[in-house]
């Protein structure tokens, strides 16, 4: 199984999109991951960018979209993770979110789905971004 999925289309018989949620606040991660699963997506979870890369490099796991917080502990923040994804997994789209004011220009160069999603975000906004990406890929 390839780690880079090419099936972002929303065909009725297509397998569900797989989302990797990267968030260091466990209860926030739990809530959004649970919501996305309720919406029919397959969801994996990572605590930080290093974990996200370990999952993205795993041959057993295929990810379509990374939804990542910008502010995370460790050597890489969400921007660095987005750059890594662009360099190493170009078929995977990235949606970034942040609780503090950051340059929307930086996010716009890294994300296909528009500017940063500002925290706190309604869970439905994340689904809307995912659907935008899926529609663009159609």
């Amino acid at each position: 199984m390839s780690t880079t999925s090419t099936h972002l289309s929303a065909k009725a018989d297509a397998p569900p999109l797989t989302i990797l949620v990267v968030e260091d606040e466990v209860l926030i991660r739990f809530v959004i991951a649970d919501y996305l699963r309720e919406c029919g997506y397959r969801v994996h979870e990572a605590v930080n960018a290093e974990e996200a890369i370990a999952i993205l490099e795993s041959p057993e796991v295929a990810v379509d979209i990374v939804f990542s917080d910008v502010e995370m502990p460790g050597s890489m923040d969400g921007f660095a993770l987005a750059r890594w994804v662009r360099a190493h997994k170009s078929g995977i789209q990235v949606i970034l979110t942040s609780g503090v004011e950051r340059s929307a220009d930086i996010a716009a160069t890294l994300c296909e789905a528009g500017p940063l999603l500002k925290k706190p975000y309604p869970s439905q906004d994340v689904v809307d971004r995912i659907r935008q990406l899926a529609a663009k890929a159609r």
Partner: peptide, 13 residues
């Protein structure tokens, strides 16, 4: 181990 956690959790779901 994020990869192992991911695989175990996915199978249980």
């Amino acid at each position: 181990d994020a990869r192992l956690r991911c695989l175990v959790s996915d199978e249980l779901r």
